[in-house]
Amino acid sequence: MDSLVVLVLCLSCLLLLSLWRQSSGRGKLPPGPTPLPVIGNILQIGIKDISKSLTNLSKVYGPVFTLYFGLKPIVVLHGYEAVKEALIDLGEEFSGRGIFPLAERANRGFGIVFSNGKKWKEIRRFSLMTLRNFGMGKRSIEDRVQEEARCLVEELRKTKASPCDPTFILGCAPCNVICSIIFHKRFDYKDQQFLNLMEKLNENIKILSSPWIQICNNFSPIIDYFPGTHNKLLKNVAFMKSYILEKVKEHQESMDMNNPQDFIDCFLMKMEKEKHNQPSEFTIESLENTAVDLFGAGTETTSTTLRYALLLLLKHPEVTAKVQEEIERVIGRNRSPCMQDRSHMPYTDAVVHEVQRYIDLLPTSLPHAVTCDIKFRNYLIPKGTTILISLTSVLHDNKEFPNPEMFDPHHFLDEGGNFKKSKYFMPFSAGKRICVGEALAGMELFLFLTSILQNFNLKSLVDPKNLDTTPVVNGFASVPPFYQLCFIPV
């Protein structure tokens, strides 16, 4: 009986604490739906499609509103004006990374994606500088992407125009580009180590996009005490870190300090320079996690976009025909596509942009946080508050993009057929937390897609009208449904 009384008292205290925290903070924060004790607004949000729920709530509470995930307040920004004001106009104040408990377990605050403060700034600055020195957006990395595009075309030829699921092959190409940047090595598509790495990356994007992960991140005790797919994700990350550590040891034994070959060499050189400046942010643990982040951000996002792009091109054969006509006119058949071609191919450029806009790969991006107490639109948001960005509300804005739910390359073309930029184009987020590999991803999408369409016609196994382009999961990332196609050599 005594234990029951204690339990009831504990629960009562928890409920009172929950109510007090919510009521004391709500006077400062933007308005929002009334949260339930302990669980907050979790029942009012469709976990399978958070973005749709945010759109519905914005119609009631406006472009800036507050939700509670458990006891934790989260300020939501919906629509271009609110997102721009926060991420661009007040970029420094909104540059923090929001709480992501599962990532905390995986990387302990290291790396480039989930770190904060001085650690994040130094690692991000170093990573950007190193990638630029190796030619991100310049010639040397373009050579690597072109080489991988040629290998991709050869792998597709091996399908002999038979029906195939493109998931694996389209994942190999961007993964190999990242391998060449980090390890100075590309792998054969049949290499077992490479296959294991690909498998872990593919599993992780599916797990991260599941409703279960949303629950884990908002009720963090689940991570330590409950079984579930989150444990598989943590094991996959541990596998990748151990693999990278092996490569780091190989580099330490063979590195030429006067001739760095890749990202690992550059990081080890930085560690050597910083060894007298303790404590340094440049450690082996930081290198492991930064490399894992580059793999995660640079492989599955690009391969998922490529997979979605081919599905949309199957669905819209008239678009595919126009792209192939432009390829034939500008590039021809006797040389590989290059980035200089893009400025002469406005329709193809528009298609690449429209694919990214339409699929809305990361509907709410990753959570941000404010780095200080900030007054925002007459609300006071306390330091450390998590900020949720609705990228969907920007990419699918119906004023900027008429009929935003329709796939239409003319969203990025003017009346004369010239490519038209849009400030609403934010597939990689915006501001200080914009994806480090934005330029690389854009290069890969253009070169891989043009190389495929230069060499193959795409054949659907069903009537294009019957192809479903609805994402199968739409949590962290929008993942396309399973499909097969035939690559018919031109």
Rank of each mutant, 00 (worst) to 15 (best):
S3V: 15
V5A: 12
V5N: 11
V6A: 13
V6I: 13
L7A: 13
C10D: 04
C10I: 11
L17I: 13
L17C: 10
L17E: 13
R21M: 13
Q22K: 15
S23K: 14
G27S: 15
P30D: 00
P31C: 06
P33K: 02
P33Q: 03
P35F: 02
G40T: 03
L43V: 11
I47M: 13
K48S: 12
I50C: 14
L54Q: 03
K59S: 12
G62L: 00
F65L: 03
T66N: 01
L67H: 03
L67I: 12
Y68V: 04
F69Q: 05
H78S: 15
Y80V: 12
E85R: 04
L87S: 06
E92G: 13
F94T: 12
F94M: 11
R97I: 04
I99S: 15
R108C: 13
R108I: 07
G109I: 05
G111M: 01
I112Q: 08
V113R: 02
S115I: 08
S115P: 10
W120S: 13
K121H: 12
R125H: 09
F126K: 03
F126W: 12
S127M: 11
S127D: 06
R132T: 06
N133T: 10
M136C: 12
R144P: 04
R144A: 12
Q146H: 04
L152S: 01
V153M: 03
E154L: 06
K158H: 08
K160G: 12
S162R: 15
D165C: 01
D165E: 04
F168V: 06
I169T: 03
G171S: 14
A173S: 03
A173D: 00
C175K: 02
F183Q: 04
K185F: 03
D188K: 05
Y189T: 02
Q192G: 10
Q193P: 07
L195C: 09
N196S: 14
M198E: 03
L201R: 05
L201V: 10
Q214K: 13
I215R: 06
S220P: 12
F226Q: 05
T229P: 15
H230I: 09
V237I: 08
Y243T: 08
I244N: 02
E246P: 03
K247Q: 14
Q252A: 10
Q252K: 15
M255H: 10
N258I: 07
N258F: 07
P260L: 05
D265W: 04
C266T: 08
L268K: 04
L268N: 04
M269H: 10
M269L: 14
K270C: 09
Q278Y: 10
T283H: 11
I284R: 06
E285I: 03
L287T: 02
T299C: 05
T299L: 04
L306T: 03
R307G: 01
H316R: 06
V323G: 01
V330W: 11
R333F: 08
R333S: 10
N334D: 14
R335N: 07
R335P: 03
C338L: 08
M339S: 08
R342Q: 10
S343Y: 11
S343G: 12
P346C: 06
Y347W: 10
Y347S: 02
T348Y: 02
D349E: 11
A350E: 00
Y358M: 11
T364V: 13
T364I: 11
S365R: 01
H368A: 04
T371A: 09
D373Y: 02
D373H: 04
F376V: 10
F376A: 06
R377I: 02
N378L: 01
Y379P: 00
Y379D: 02
G384K: 05
T385I: 04
I387H: 01
L388A: 07
I389V: 12
D397I: 05
K399Q: 12
E400L: 09
P402M: 11
N403P: 03
P404Q: 08
F407R: 00
P409T: 02
H410R: 14
H410E: 14
H411K: 05
F412M: 04
F412D: 00
L413T: 03
D414A: 04
E415C: 07
N418M: 10
N418A: 11
P427I: 05
I434F: 15
I434V: 15
I434L: 14
C435S: 00
C435H: 00
L440M: 06
G442L: 14
M443F: 04
L447R: 00
F448N: 00
L449P: 00
T450R: 01
L453S: 01
Q454H: 05
V462A: 08
D463C: 06
P464S: 05
T470K: 12
N474V: 06
G475N: 05
F476I: 15
F476G: 06
A477M: 10
L485H: 00
F487D: 00
F487S: 00
